[in-house]
Design a binder for these strands. Structure first.
Length: 477
DNA sequence: ATAGGGTTAG
């Protein structure tokens, strides 16, 4: 039964359980507890409670594990009063609660109830001779911090120091993270100092948390100085810390420093993830350093720098933007050679730029390749393609992609409709409306009626056309 | 069989 439950096969476990009863065997406390726990784990709280009730009927005495599981069930459902009832019940039945039971309750009271009651229970368990450890408190502090309750986490933190425990690096970093989450960077820094005073050496997670916190609050120079302090202390920044700081530097337009940091990272020999590399490359591009990005990309293929499909997306787009159409096409062609798979985004970039370059047949070829490879089509791509085609006056091709939208039951986005309307409002283009697929061509009349928010078309079929505020057009009759 | 630590994710 135990192994069945472990593999999520609760139904079979239940069958084993039932067959035991059928054979006249009386399931023991452990069997009941296993089943109870399995149900609780799957969120089937009602079934779990039925098992618990069944035990009392069959006169199987719940033990500490059974109670603990039931208490956990109530705590998870946020029914703390019920949890406390079970807690009293077990004490009345002469079963002393253990650490697991206290942990459940304390965690629940601290994170979703009364902090004072939580602390009361902590004192109670200490009085009973149990020594809650750092792991135990760590999860409570994390739970509070996750909810943005850094001050309450601090309260518990101070409390455990008062009762003579020594928080470790992990607990300090949890609390620091808690303050970072609510943008209280000064408080977070106080904790860093407290940590140093306690004789603990901040590690890369602590520094990384703070660097990230400073970045997210726009205090990039503070982030940089911590970054510096970290290196001085011999704490090696990880790829992720670099990613955070590079992203932020480039967002702030600090290209020179970003380049320094990038070179430093590559030079240090750590593995540079594709995500970090992409952050750097796209940051360069948004800071008008496309040429540099392209040069870098061409030389950094090997070594400790990883690439992924997103890297190629960025570079293909950049090559188009810098009029390197052939190189863009070559790069696209090389994707499968490198062993990567183009994403919808890749196809999106290829098609829209090819159309903008007037290479319409190439764009169609890319589209059919996409269909052949089974890459899932999305509405955004089709709408985008329709718009760039319309902008070039390519009605027939736009019509083809509009039919695809229809076929797939996607929505024609409001901006696509707007473009259709403004295109066909031009006297010279009006007649070309018949080049559109029938399902779409009705739109041209809209242009002559009303292009604002609500229009009625055509009067004889009463079709209501509404431009939603979320940017989608809906047509209903 | 019960509770059960940390930072950044296009």
């Amino acid at each position: 039964m135990s192994s069945l439950c472990k593999h999520g096969r609760n139904k079979e476990a239940r069958e084993v359980f039932d067959s035991m009863s059928a054979k006249g065997q009386k399931p023991d406390v452990i069997s009941y507890s296993i089943l109870l726990h399995a149900y609780a784990n799957e969120g089937m709280m009602d079934d779990a409670m039925l098992i618990f009730k069944e035990m009392t009927h069959k006169e199987v005495k719940p033990n500490v594990v059974t109670y603990s599981t039931v208490i956990a069930v109530f705590c998870r459902m946020g029914q703390l009063d019920c949890a406390m009832n079970i807690f009293s019940q077990m004490i009345n039945h002469g079963i002393p609660p253990n650490e697991a039971v206290y942990h459940c309750l304390i965690q629940a009271f601290c994170c979703q109830g009364d902090l004072v009651k939580g602390k009361e229970l902590i004192s109670e368990m200490i009085d009973k001779g149990m020594r809650p450890n750092n792991v135990f408190f760590g999860s409570i502090i994390k739970g509070l911090c996750r909810k943005g309750r850094a001050m309450d986490a601090q309260d518990i933190f101070d409390f455990i120091i008062r009762i003579g425990l020594h928080p470790n690096v992990i607990m300090f970093s949890s609390l620091i993270h808690g303050y970072c989450l609510v943008s209280k960077m000064d408080e977070a820094m106080k904790i860093l100092h407290a940590m140093k005073s306690a004789g603990l050496q901040p590690n890369v997670v602590v520094y990384g948390t703070l660097v990230n916190g400073y970045c997210k609050t726009g205090r990039i120079d503070n982030a940089l100085s911590l970054f510096h302090e970290m290196s001085l202390k011999g704490v090696k920044p990880t790829n992720l810390v670099y990613k955070v700081i590079l992203g932020e530097l480039l967002l702030a337009g600090r290209v020179v420093v970003a380049k320094e940091k990038f070179n430093e990272m590559v030079g240090s020999g750590i593995l540079v993830s594709a995500a970090t590399y992409n952050t750097f490359l796209s940051g360069l591009c948004t800071n008008d350093c496309s040429e540099e990005a392209i040069m870098l990309f061409k030389k950094t293929h090997a070594g400790n720098v990883k690439i992924d499909i997103r890297t190629l997306d960025i570079m293909i787009a950049e090559m188009f933007k810098t009029r390197r159409t052939e190189e863009a096409k070559d790069l696209f062609a090389s994707i499968s050679v490198i062993g990567l798979i183009p994403s919808v985004e890749t196809y999106h970039i290829m098609m829209t730029y090819l159309i903008k370059e007037g290479m319409l047949d190439d764009a169609d070829t890319v589209f059919s390749t996409m269909q052949k490879t089974g890459c899932p089509l999305n509405s955004r791509l089709l709408n985008y393609v329709v718009r760039v085609l319309l902008e070039r006056g390519e009605i027939v091709r736009a019509g083809n992609y509009l039919s695809k939208i229809d076929e797939k039951n996607f929505t024609v986005e409001a901006s696509s409709i707007e473009l259709l309307i403004s295109f066909f409002s031009k006297e010279t283009c009006r007649k070309r409306v018949e080049l559109l697929p029938a399902s779409i061509s009705f739109l041209w009349k809209l242009a002559t009626i009303d292009t604002s928010h609500v229009s009625l078309y055509p009067p004889e079929t009463l079709v209501l056309f509404v431009m939603n505020h979320d940017g989608y057009a809906t047509v209903s009759s």
